[in-house]
Simulated scan of single mutants.
Amino acid sequence: MNRDAVPRLAGWQQTWRLVAAAALGIPFWLSTAAVLPRGCAADTCSWLVTGDPLVALGCLTVLLWRRRFPLAVAMVVAVASGTSALAVGAALLALCSMSTRRRPAEIGVAACVYVAASQLTLVLYPIKSPSGPVWLQLALPALSAGIAVAMGVAIGARRVEVRSLRARAESAEREQRAREAQARALERNHVAREMHDVLAHRISLVAMQAGVLDHRRNLTPEENRTLIRGIADGSHQALEELRDVLGVLRADPDAPEPPQPSLDRVPELVADARTSGLDVTLTTAVRGKPSDVVGRTCYRVLQEALTNAAKHAPGATVHLTLEGTAGDELHVSVHNSPATTATNPPPSSGFGLLGLSERVTLVGGELTHHSTHDGGYLLTAHLPWPNHDHEERS
């Protein structure tokens, strides 16, 4: 920001400054009239009454441009003040206004011109010069110029400080808006990830069951009823879970969050998958209870793996393995055999494994997945399990 950039004054602000400058010149004009000798020359007294006010009026008019041309206006008014006592106030205002720029060279030149021009009064009016050294004759003009300069420098410093504080406030406001936007983006990503985790699994199982009904014509009535009941139950659970997620968005931000899935709910996840028709086996060798974060991450890894198996390998055998202990790592392994049923796979977002990898990375773990030599697929995750997390929750 330009340090010399000064906002334009309102009409009333401009007016009262000019009135103050005119009023300040009146004492100088009266003091000059008081020291004139009795019976002074007619032309001298006529200048005091007519010419002096006219010059002062011209100086006040020139002051309207002092913010656009501060140095030029200050020089012109300073010189004119030597021929008009009433213009002294205008000269001091111009000097003060120019000093707000805080440029020592300009201030020094303008102040010297003002002090030197003040001596023209002794030539224009028949005033008896006071006895004493020259510096005493310059004392009053120099003092008045010094006061004007000091006021101008102080005003300029105040303007710079105000501009700096305003710039800091605007910068802080921009940073706050950026932080809010980032927080909203993170929250949207969080909600999107939760909705994917919650819904993708249920919808994939429903789609798999519907695909079995569509492709297999030799099912018994009891098998048909089981699949239809599974589709209805899965759809109902998907709606309930979606309602829970949307309820979090509408709820009071200070309200407690609903319970999150943990490692204890893995058997329920496996049971749901078996009910939907997946051939799932679970092997667990976990000693202890991991932290909520690790347990929730493990649950989401298994949920996403079962969802992908239902989508891309219908009819396959899925084997889940969990093993680990506190102070080491929690190892998660999901292996599915090749698909044995030909169905049209449901639409995929393509972000399931990507989001899962980000989730695992956030807890300091590592996720790998690849095809196996038998045509199946293997997904493994290594999640850190520090001792202190276990001790705090035991």
Rank of each mutant, 00 (worst) to 15 (best):
A251C: 02
A251D: 07
D252C: 11
D252Q: 10
D252N: 15
P253F: 02
D254L: 14
D254R: 13
A255S: 15
P256I: 02
P256G: 05
E257F: 06
E257P: 04
E257H: 05
E257C: 07
E257M: 11
P258Y: 02
P259Y: 04
P259I: 04
Q260P: 07
Q260S: 15
Q260V: 15
Q260H: 14
Q260F: 06
P261V: 13
P261S: 13
P261W: 14
P261N: 13
S262F: 03
S262K: 03
S262A: 11
S262H: 01
S262Q: 01
L263C: 03
L263S: 06
L263Q: 05
L263T: 02
D264C: 04
D264H: 00
D264K: 04
D264M: 06
D264L: 06
R265N: 06
R265Q: 13
R265V: 12
V266S: 03
V266N: 04
V266Q: 01
P267V: 10
P267H: 11
P267N: 13
E268Y: 02
E268I: 04
L269K: 10
L269S: 09
L269F: 06
V270M: 10
A271H: 09
A271R: 14
A271N: 08
A271G: 06
D272V: 11
A273N: 05
R274D: 04
R274Y: 07
R274I: 08
R274E: 13
T275G: 09
T275L: 05
T275V: 00
T275S: 11
T275Y: 01
S276Y: 12
S276Q: 10
S276G: 13
G277R: 08
G277H: 09
G277P: 13
G277W: 05
G277T: 11
L278D: 03
L278M: 11
L278H: 11
D279Y: 01
D279F: 00
D279I: 03
V280L: 09
T281D: 15
T281Q: 15
L282C: 00
T283R: 12
T283I: 07
T284V: 15
T284Q: 14
V286F: 03
V286I: 13
R287E: 15
R287S: 12
G288E: 11
K289C: 08
K289H: 09
K289Y: 01
P290T: 13
P290N: 13
P290K: 10
P290F: 03
P290H: 07
P290Y: 02
P290Q: 14
S291W: 06
S291N: 00
D292C: 08
D292E: 10
V293Y: 00
V293M: 09
V293C: 00
V293A: 12
